[in-house]
């Protein structure tokens, strides 16, 4: 990949979001601007109250800014209807949540198929096939028929990642995707994200408050009190795979 041909997946300028709490107005975002190019792996960091959840909601087309512009894959997201937002979420964005949000008593395969149900462009026949490919990409091809409660936390999150991938979105939005996992599993998930980023060229925006997770990304945007206070390229991206190998082996795991 050359620097010149990179397209902007996401471009926000002076994004503001106010919430009315009774008579008071809370300014959650006070003018946030940055852009993300295709193939980047960006972490958004910040303590609670920094506005990162609000930003994530806007980037994920779940919420709309009070002011400012948001360009997603060249589409100007401005005063869209609920249905238009739903369409954008379906085609352009793949969500990965902290608590996986898999449907219980529904097989891994069916969970992954879910976004395709709301995509009229994918014929019924292709759904299963696409979902199987997505599960292969997260190396869960032998767990397709398992229910979420038959899978470990890490496996459940991998199903969720497959679900995020299945519609071939322009970016994956991960919200504290390793927040519920232990260190080892977190590293496994991060190594999967890195693999998707480097080998498949997926654009990933990863919200976290853990600096060691941010170290696996190529760039870190830090928010504080509704503003970007740092936006740095990571000079030395850690390999999650190597970090995983370097972890001391727990006797209980062996």
């Amino acid at each position: 990949m050359t620097e010149i041909n990179k397209t902007k997946i996401l471009d926000i300028t002076e994004l503001k979001r106010d919430f009315r709490m009774g008579v008071e107005t809370v300014k959650a975002l006070k003018g946030v601007s940055f852009s993300v190019e295709a193939g980047e792996f960006v972490t958004i960091m910040g303590s609670s109250g920094s506005g990162k959840t609000t930003l994530l909601n806007i980037l994920g087309c779940l919420d709309q800014p009070t002011d400012g512009t948001y360009l997603l894959d060249g589409v100007h997201v401005k005063n869209p209807s609920r249905n238009e937002l739903a369409h954008l979420r379906n085609r352009k964005i793949g969500f990965v949540f902290q608590s996986y949000n898999l449907l219980s008593r529904t097989s891994a395969l069916e969970n992954v198929e879910l976004p395709l149900l709301y995509n009229a462009d994918v014929p019924t026949k292709e759904r299963r096939e696409k979902a199987m490919h997505a599960l292969e990409a997260v190396r869960l091809q032998d767990r397709m028929d398992h229910m979420p409660n038959e899978l470990s936390g890490g496996q459940q999150q991998r199903v969720a990642i497959a679900r995020a991938l299945v519609n071939e979105p322009v970016m994956i939005l991960a919200d504290e995707a390793t927040g519920n996992l232990d260190t080892r599993t977190s590293y496994e998930i991060m190594s999967l994200f890195q693999e998707l980023n480097t080998q498949k060229g997926k654009t990933i925006i990863f919200v976290t408050h853990e600096p060691d997770i941010a170290a696996f990304s190529s760039r870190t945007v830090t928010l504080k009190d509704g503003r970007v206070i740092k936006d740095l390229k990571n000079p030395k991206v850690l390999s999650a795979k190597e970090s995983l190998a370097a972890l001391p082996v727990d006797k209980d795991d062996a």
Binding site: R91, N101, P115, N167
Partner: peptide
């Protein structure tokens, strides 16, 4: 939560 998730992955109100 299921409804929230379905909406997040692209379900419209009518769906």
């Amino acid at each position: 939560r299921e409804i929230g998730l379905r909406m997040a992955i692209g379900a419209r109100g009518i769906d």
